[in-house]
Design a protein around this nucleic acid. Structure first.
Lengths: 208, 208
DNA sequence: GCCGAAACTGAGCGCTCGCTTAGAACGCTC
DNA sequence: GAGCGTTCTAAGCGAGCGCTCAGTTTCGGC
C-alpha cells in the first residue's frame, strides 16, 4: 500500500522514505510553502499550519527550519541524480541515451515542479556544510550528462566544439523548466520533455 | 561626465537615470544585497549600511523596501527589452539577428549578473500591481524573440516545429545564465554569448 | 486497566524586522 | 546672515519571527 500524498497541483509526491507520518506531512507542507513563497518568506507557523499541527510540533521532528530544507534538497537531488544515472546507463547509443536523459529529467522538473523549484532555487539558503554536500551531488549530475555527450562525440554521433559549455547549457535548460512551467499551462510534462529532447539533440548536432 | 558606479565584481552599472546620488547609492546597494541573499533575506539595515547611511535614510528616497525592488526590476526589464529590440530591428537576415539577440542578451545576463539575478529571480516578491506591470514587459520580451524566429521560419532559414515552445526554451536558456554564471569562472560574458548564439542557431535548425 | 515513552499543544521568550518620529545639520536664496 | 526646505541621524515602536518549555494527551505492551 502506497503512502504517497497528492498535492494541490495533482502531482503525486512519493515521500515514502520520510517517516513517521507526521514528519512526512510537515515535509510536504514545507515543500509547498517554500515553492510558493521561497524559504526566507516562509514561516514555521505556516508550515505547521498546512500540516494541521501547532508551530511547536515541527520541532519534535526537525531541529530547525533549515533542516527541513536540507532534507528536501537531499532527497530531491538524490532523485534527480537517480533519473540521470538510469538514463545514462541505458543500452542504446549516445543519441538515444541523451534523449532519454533530457526527457525524463525535464519530465521530473515539470511534473514535480513544486519539489524541483525548492531543490534548484533555494540552495543558497542552506548553511555551508549542507550546501557543500548538495554541490557535490550537483557535480555528479553534471558528470552524468557530460559523460553521455563525451560518448556521443567519441562515436561521432555528436558534433560538439565545447563539451563542458554545452553540458552546462543542457542542464541549465532543463533546470529552468522548474521556474517557468505552469501546471495550468498548455503543455504537459511529457510534451515539454519531448520538445526539449529534440532541442538538445539539435544542440549537440545529432542526426535526426 | 559619467556617474557610473563600479561594483565589487568589476561590472559597470550605469544607473545614471536614478537621481539624486544618495538614491542611486541605495539602489546599487540594494541590487548587490538582493542578488547575494535574495529580497526576503535582505534587511533595510543592510542596504542602508552598504550605502554608508543610517537605516532611516532609505525612507527619504523610497517609500518601502518593495519600491526599491520595483524600481530595480523596472529599469532592468527596460534594459533587457531594449537590448532585444535593438537586435531584432537590425538589418541582417533572421539568422544574423537571432545570433545577435542571443549573444547580446546573454552578455548582459553574464556581465550584469548581479542586476540580472534580481530582475529575473525576485519577481515573486513584488506586489500584484507591480508584478503585473513587469509581466507585461516579459510578454514584450517574448514577442521580440518569437518575431525573429517567425521571420526565419517564413524565409526558410529555420526549421522549427514548435515556435512558441522553442521561443520559451531560447529565453529560458539565456535567462538561466544569471543563475549559474560566475565572474571568477573560466568563461567571459563574450565567450558565453558566442557559445549560446551557436547553440540557439542549432536549436532552430539554421545553416551554419 | 495501568504505566512510561512518545507526540503534541498553549503560551511565550528574546530578538530582529520594516518603518516612524523628533530633531540636528546642511545648503541655497535674498 | 537670517530663514527655510531638504537631507540626514538616533532612538525606538509594534509586529512577527524562530524556537523553547511545562504540561497534557495518546497509545502500545503487559
Amino acid at each position: 500500500m502506497s503512502t504517497a500524498e497528492e498535492t494541490a497541483g495533482g502531482e503525486i509526491e512519493p515521500w515514502d522514505e520520510v517517516t513517521p507520518d507526521a514528519a512526512r506531512r510537515l515535509l510536504v507542507a514545507a515543500v509547498e510553502a517554500f515553492a510558493e513563497r521561497g524559504y526566507h518568506a516562509t514561516t514555521t507557523r505556516d508550515i505547521a499550519g498546512r500540516a494541521g499541527m501547532s508551530p511547536a510540533a515541527l520541532y519534535i521532528h526537525y531541529k530547525t527550519k533549515e533542516e527541513l530544507l536540507h532534507r528536501i534538497s537531499r532527497i530531491g537531488h538524490d532523485r534527480a541524480l537517480d533519473i540521470l544515472r538510469t538514463a545514462a546507463a541505458g543500452d542504446g547509443d549516445a543519441t538515444l541515451r541523451l534523449a532519454e536523459a533530457v526527457s525524463s529529467f525535464v519530465r521530473w522538473h515539470a511534473g514535480r515542479r513544486t519539489t524541483a523549484r525548492v531543490v534548484q532555487y533555494e540552495l543558497d539558503a542552506l548553511g555551508p556544510e549542507a550546501r557543500a554536500e548538495i554541490l557535490d551531488l550537483r557535480r555528479q549530475v553534471d558528470a552524468e550528462v557530460r559523460g553521455i555527450i563525451e560518448d556521443g562525440v567519441a562515436t561521432g554521433e555528436f558534433d560538439v566544439p565545447d563539451v563542458h559549455g554545452t553540458t552546462l547549457a543542457v542542464l541549465s535548460l532543463c533546470i529552468d523548466v522548474a521556474r517557468w512551467f505552469n501546471v495550468d499551462g498548455p503543455r504537459t510534462p511529457d510534451e515539454v520533455g519531448a520538445l526539449y529532447a529534440d532541442l538538445v539533440l539539435r544542440m549537440v548536432g545529432a542526426a535526426k
